[in-house]
Nucleic acid binder design. Structure first.
Lengths: 109, 109
DNA sequence: GCTTGGAACTTAGTGTTGCTAAGTACCGGT
DNA sequence: ACCGGTACTTAGCAACACTAAGTTCCAAGC
């Protein structure tokens, strides 16, 4: 979708990944393919890995290394308590923004 | 709302301003107060002016200088044809993202 | 045995964006 | 003459997604 989407993903992609991790741990490569299945076909692999490093450093996820049969060891990410809190705040922020925008769209204006 | 909102506004603030300009020309200071009335109380003045310069350079708006009784001359921005096209694309991008996120939220997951 | 290809992750550098902070210009009221 | 509100500008910063190139590990092919 291009440049607009790139900019719009700033601030939302982190929330999307946190949401994907709710109830189901996953590793980077897996998350990338999940995103692509969800329609985010243009998200670069490097972007996802960088994001994962970031949320790990922020302490939003726990990490566990597990061997893979097909390649180098996987880093499996699990949402922890702090991550759930962050995800909640994300949904709040999103709701606020979403409501304003839908209103603006209705006004046509 | 803090840092999350700051990041989420990247990519959406431009669309919001373009939407505000639909059908009604406005100048910078006015747009800032409009945004605040709409609930975006934390958006910095400088941010809005910088954005206006940007969309002018992109050719999305036409600008006209009009004297003010209360201060320096106002720069009045009007959405032009190219701006309307951009706004349409913005709504498309927004719709896509919005649908994905609502689905994610529903899944709970 | 060696190479190819896919799985899985890493790193360095770039551009865009919103924010902070400070400033300038103009005017009315006290 | 000064202050506060209007209105706009500018320089520097931080965060984020992207590009591009790389590294590691293993299985299957010739």
């Amino acid at each position: 979708m291009g440049k607009q989407m790139t900019e719009m993903l700033k601030g939302t992609l982190e929330g999307i990944v946190l949401a994907l991790l709710t109830g189901k741990a996953a590793y980077g490569y897996e998350i990338t393919t999940l995103l692509r299945e969800q329609g985010f076909t243009e998200i670069a692999e490097g972007t996802v890995y960088a994001l994962l490093v970031r949320i790990e450093q922020k302490g939003l996820v726990d990490v566990e290394k597990r061997p893979s049969e097909k390649g180098p060891p996987r880093k499996v990410y699990t949402l922890n308590a702090q991550g759930k809190t962050e995800l909640n705040e994300f949904w709040n922020t999103w709701s606020f923004l979403s409501e304003r925008l839908e209103q603006l769209r209705k006004e046509g204006n």
